[in-house]
Design a protein around this nucleic acid. Structure first.
Length: 816
RNA sequence: GCCCAGGUGGUGAAAUUGGUAGACACGCUAGCUUCAGGUGCUAGUGCUCGCAAGGGCGUGGAGGUUCAAGUCCUCUCCUGGGCACCA
């Protein structure tokens, strides 16, 4: 007699049991292989959305699959708890960010528990906990001592009405989101970590990450952006701002004779000096400053420029080159000046056309003629022309020749440049880790001594929406060091700092003697499987790799890279865009959990699409996942498990077919879970098997044995995805308690076939199918294929030119 | 603008190594079951011509390579992600 499937009851009962027995709590164990499975921890925004469910289900399926392989699996969970949304919520709801954040954590923790994820909850971390961020502060002071941290002026978005710094997200169409004022770029002192010192290693390390998607590695390579080029200078007749030359970097020294002007950034010292005597230029600089600092905004902004009237000397030809100021040249990047070659660079070409600046074509097209640059820039490399002394040279010859000439005259040298910039970690916001630095009365900075850490963030605060409470409170700032009064830094860390090392802290979350307990860290690290959104392909993953190397060089961990294998999950989109609170297009999975239970939600989110693909959200199909679960439920309950299931030696063909299907499915699902990580096709294969088991009659004891074998395998294979269902049905089927570390064994002999079906094509089109004995050789297959009636029809009046036989698959007869 | 992906039925998708396009589901249609249906079962379902057997077309678009292309190459259009202060 079938009982009804009531997921709420059975899921809650099992979850309570898992919690009570500490089922998923783990410790190092040298008798088993370890496996550290980690999903990117969430920002506690309020409640889970479908993107979270997808992310955490993928990781949980992998973790549980590895448990079934007998491994010692660590799967922790925590909270990326600092960040901007808490400040916004605090203002909107009149509640301190800390309280809002902790409430969200409590709610979301309950939701994750309701989804039945196999987490070791004893290791839970929230980054806003002082026990966490104190070690981050400590580590920063260590980096300071090593010279890996420094302070410099850097550009921020400034809201002139609210008198506050805005995040890029808070700038909408060039205006502050609250005040509506046009934002300005402003330079303020900020702390930086020297990620560029590790640029080379971060680049080279990508080659070792063969468990990472190629797309992510490519994006990181391009982001680091190593390029060979030449640093050269255009001389000035009279020094300006103590500079007697303008330095530029180019990867195309071969086009040096094509330079027709130079562009300076608005913040370049020469620009600023010139503006002092030139009011229109000052006006232009002010216009340039009225823009967001986001690179995307700048790249899409209309290109604006102004001739400064200054002339610089071309380092080879000695010609006078006009010096312009352009809004697309960035002071933060490179030297803040570029040599413009409009004939061979697209941006320069556009700019030159707009301001009617001359073009000088110095590269030939493949035919050997000067390239046509009238209708657009010619950016290919080619043989030089109109370049005295280098005409006829290839790119490589010209590169070396021109670099050598510049070196002789002291006007340049070959160099390697990285696109990567140092990591600015200062944020002018409240809800973050206080930067553990002190401003001394006589000027200068010094780290807060280790024994005075943590530098605690006060939590009981009122947000006014404009100024950070720790900036507004002069008392908080006060600090006494060796009897001297000084002031705390009131900026906080970028939240990426917290998320750059949490994976390591999970190995020893309660360690009080230091940042990491190396013994624990080195047992578990590196993370064997990291799962998270593709939107983190560059920043978070690069910063984490960087931090790992910093921790290694501090002797805290012994590995070089933090994440061995990476699965970048596609985004769950709604209305065609990333789900986010700020867009208001999130989908709440709670209603689905309440209605269908966790297993249905888990099954559906795995079945809907392959994990790496982005997914436009729609509810349709959830019903189908639930229907499958109920069908399996009946199948198991209706199966007479009391009847002895003795496998017979002599199975019928039909029974052999079912057994083959069982073992083909085991092979496929193992491959899909383990190597391919395509959980949707694994589910489809299990569904197919269930369909077949349901169709097969249970007439005799051999039938019974075969179906029993199939149902056992189905419940085991489904455990990673629908653990409650599997654990609940297992005793119904077997009379015994579910044994976790047991993946169904593959019986290779069950896979063999006596007969194969081969497709027959004529000129590439399918004209028939033919059954051939598995042992048939190519000649036999060919003659069987030829004998097909429909094949013959298409061969009449034709001469056979060629016959291609693809073993096990097809025959293609080429005829004319 | 730059970097990285993706585009296949009415829908989500499958096709793993260049070898049968559309597995598995959703939806829909018809039938059975049921007092009833947000139940269960059976059959059908890319488009198109045909009574059928079978044929033609078909993987964003245009070209190309190949006995064979969703898969490889060139160009192009569209969608999504990232662009350093959203996380």
């Amino acid at each position: 007699m079938s009982q009804d499937y009531i997921p709420q009851t059975l899921e809650l009962a099992l979850q309570a049991q898992w919690a009570e027995t500490g089922r998923f709590a783990v410790q190092p164990d040298n008798t088993r292989e370890k496996f550290y499975c980690l999903a990117m921890f969430p920002y506690p925004s309020g409640k889970l959305h479908m993107g979270h469910v997808r992310n955490y289900t993928i990781a949980d399926v992998i973790a549980r699959y590895q448990r079934m392989q007998g491994k010692n699996v660590l799967q922790p969970m925590g909270w990326d708890a600092f960040g901007l949304p808490a400040e916004n919520a605090a203002i909107a709801n009149n509640v301190p960010p800390a309280a809002w954040t902790r409430e969200n954590i409590a709610h979301m923790r309950a939701q994750l528990q309701r989804l039945g994820y196999a987490y070791d909850w004893d290791r839970e971390i929230a980054t806003c906990d002082p026990h966490y961020y104190q070690w981050e502060q400590w580590f920063f002071t260590q980096l300071y001592e090593k010279g890996l941290v420094y302070k410099k002026m850097a550009t921020v978005n400034w809201d002139p009405v609210d008198q506050t710094v805005l995040a890029n997200e808070q700038v909408i169409d060039g205006r502050g989101w609250r005040s509506g004022a046009l934002v300005e770029r402003r330079e303020i002192p900020q702390w930086f970590i020297r990620i560029t010192s590790y640029a080379e290693e971060l680049l080279d390390g990508l080659d070792t990450l063969d468990g990472w998607p190629e797309a992510v590695r490519t994006m990181q390579r391009n982001w680091i952006g190593k390029s060979q080029g030449v640093e050269l200078a255009f001389g000035l007749e009279t020094p300006i701002a103590d500079l007697d030359k303008i330095e530029v970097f180019t990867t195309r020294p071969d086009t040096l004779h094509g330079v027709t002007y130079i562009s300076l950034a608005a913040e370049h010292p020469i620009t600023l000096a010139l503006a002092e005597q030139h009011p229109p230029l000052q006006q232009f600089i002010d216009t340039c400053k009225q823009a967001s600092v986001a690179e995307a905004d700048m790249a899409q902004a209309e290109k604006l420029g102004m001739d400064t009237g200054l002339r610089a000397r071309h380092p080879l030809s000695g010609e006078e080159i006009p010096v312009w100021v352009a809004n697309y040249v960035l002071m933060d990047y490179g030297s803040g000046a570029v040599m413009a070659v409009p004939a061979h660079d697209e941006r320069d070409w556009e700019f030159a056309r707009k301001y009617d600046l001359p073009l000088k074509t110095v590269i030939c097209d493949p035919e050997g003629n000067p390239a046509d640059t009238q209708s657009g820039a010619y950016t290919e490399k080619g043989v030089l022309t109109a370049s005295p002394g280098f005409d006829g040279c290839s790119f490589e010859e010209a590169f070396e020749g021109i670099a050598a000439r510049l070196e002789e005259t002291g006007m340049g040298r070959t160099t390697t440049q990285f696109r990567l910039r140092d990591w600015g970690v200062s944020r002018q916001r409240y809800w973050g880790t206080p930067i553990p630095m002190l401003n001394l009365a006589e000027g200068g900075d010094i780290p807060i001594p280790a024994d005075r850490l943590p530098s605690l963030l006060p939590e009981d605060v009122v947000m006014d929406g404009v100024t950070s409470p720790i900036k507004a409170d002069p008392e908080w700032r006060k600090f006494e060091l060796a009897g001297e009064a000084c002031e705390r830094e009131t900026d906080t860390f970028d939240t990426f700092v917290q998320s750059s090392w949490y994976y390591a802290r999970f190995t020893c979350p309660n360690y009080t003697e230091g940042m990491l307990d190396s013994e624990q860290a080195n047992y578990w690290l590196p993370v064997d499987q990291y799962v998270g959104g593709i939107e983190h392909a560059i920043l978070h993953l690069l910063y984490s790799r960087f931090f790992h190397k910093l921790m290694r060089d501090a002797g805290l961990v012994s590995s070089d890279e933090p994440f061995k294998r990476l699965l970048t999950q596609g985004m769950v989109l709604k209305d065609g865009a990333k789900m986010s609170k700020s867009r208001g297009n999130t989908v709440d999975p709670q209603t689905l959990i309440d209605r269908y239970g966790a297993d249905t939600v888990r099954l559906f989110s795995m079945f809907a699409a392959p994990p790496e693909q982005s997914l436009e959200w729609s509810d349709s199909g959830v019903e189908g996942a639930n229907r499958f679960i109920r069908r399996l439920w009946r199948l198991v309950h209706d199966f007479d498990s009391t009847q002895a299931a003795v496998p017979s030696d002599a199975l019928s063909d039909e029974q052999k077919n079912v057994r083959r299907k069982i073992h083909e499915t085991i092979a496929k699902v193992s491959d899909d879970y383990g190597r391919r990580q395509t959980f949707n096709t694994a589910v489809a294969a299990i569904m197919e098997l269930c369909n077949e088991l349901g169709r097969h009659p249970a007439d005799d004891s051999s039938d019974h044995a075969v179906i029993s074998e199939g149902l056992h395998a189905v419940l085991q294979m489904l455990w990673p995805i629908t653990p409650h269902l599997s654990e609940h049905l297992w005793p119904v089927l077997t009379g015994n308690a579910f044994v976790e570390s047991q993946w169904p064994a593959l019986d290779e002999t069950a896979l063999s076939r006596d007969e194969l079906e081969i497709v027959v094509q004529v000129n590439g089109k399918v004209r028939g199918k033919v059954k051939v004995p598995a042992s048939a050789d190519n000649a036999e297959i060919e003659s069987l294929a030829m004998s097909q009636e429909n094949v013959q029809r298409f061969l009449t009046d034709k001469t056979i030119r060629k016959v291609i036989v693809v073993p096990q698959k097809l025959v293609n007869i080429v005829a004319q």
